[in-house]
């Protein structure tokens, strides 16, 4: 009940914030404006439409994941509303888990709003409903949950600006870390090799959730890879939440 109360309150806070709607609006706006780009395009217009639509939703939902996660936890501490929660019989782990589920719900609603518009738009423009795009969005949602867990971790001990920098950095690294896989085996120096291995396994591999190319070029999806990615996300999020709780338990609210 306590986790539910914190989660619902987090959701209320996020959805009563104008920035949240602004980002959703821009997401939808860019999806719709991709139609304009197709006017200037030669060749497969549906492909361009899909490509731009998915990229827009991806970009704006990632922004929501980063900034809502950081903003909401920071505000609780800065405005001291957290005193009102933690002075009650609420453990710090309960607070963090409640926040996470609240953010997960916030992201779900934001994503689903953009996805519905996207599908309607695609249906209207191309007359096709590609179920595989739904898989893309499911994987994107798990990626967003990882990003919001990262922002939750950083905002549990750092300032909003630093948390944003750290989270954005990890997001970018997360999309290129797969290149380490081949690179790390070619390293000769054992120390650097060990460090490369550690980094490869510790840093989030967000490319696991990117199936945009397969969707756009209409190639088949690998179901075992998809399941593996979801398991990876659940494991990674759990590890991040445990780490956040451990740090948050030590935090002093001066």
């Amino acid at each position: 009940m306590k986790i539910r109360a914190i989660a619902l309150n987090t959701f209320k806070e996020a959805t009563r914030n104008k920035i949240y709607y602004l980002l959703i609006f821009f997401g939808v706006f860019f999806v719709l404006s991709s139609k304009l780009v197709t006017l200037l395009t030669l060749g497969d217009k549906v492909k361009v439409l899909k490509d731009l639509g998915l990229a827009s939703i991806n970009f704006f939902s990632v922004l929501i994941a980063i900034f809502t996660g950081i903003d909401l936890v920071y505000k609780e501490i800065e405005k001291k509303t957290i005193y009102n929660i933690l002075s009650k019989p609420v453990s710090r782990s309960c607070f963090i888990i409640g926040k996470f589920f609240g953010l997960a719900l916030t992201l779900f609603v934001a994503l689903i709003s953009m996805v519905i518009i996207f599908f309607l738009f695609m249906l209207l423009f191309s007359g096709e409903f590609d179920v595989r795009i739904l898989v893309y969005f499911i994987l994107l949602y798990f990626e967003l949950l990882i990003i919001t867990s990262i922002s939750l971790l950083f905002s549990s001990f750092s300032t909003p600006i630093l948390s944003s920098v750290f989270t954005i950095s990890l997001y970018l690294i997360g999309h290129v870390i797969w290149t380490f896989n081949e690179f790390k085996d070619k390293i000769v120096n054992p120390i650097i090799k060990t460090i490369s291995y550690i980094l490869y396994y510790i840093l989030p591999n967000l490319e696991k959730f990117n199936i945009k190319n397969s969707i756009v070029v209409n190639s088949d999806l690998d179901s075992s890879m998809i399941l593996g990615s979801i398991c990876y996300a659940i494991f990674y999020i759990s590890a991040l939440l445990i780490l956040t709780i451990l740090i948050f338990n030590k935090r002093e609210f001066k």
């Binding site: 009940m1 109360a5 309150n9 209320k12 001291k80 509303t81 009650k88 019989p89």
Partner: peptide
Amino acid sequence: HPYFYDYLTAKELLCFSGMLFS
């Protein structure tokens, strides 16, 4: 200097506080 969530109503805040006591 209590500061409560200003997007809540008085009733919502009290309900939220009560739920934290289960």
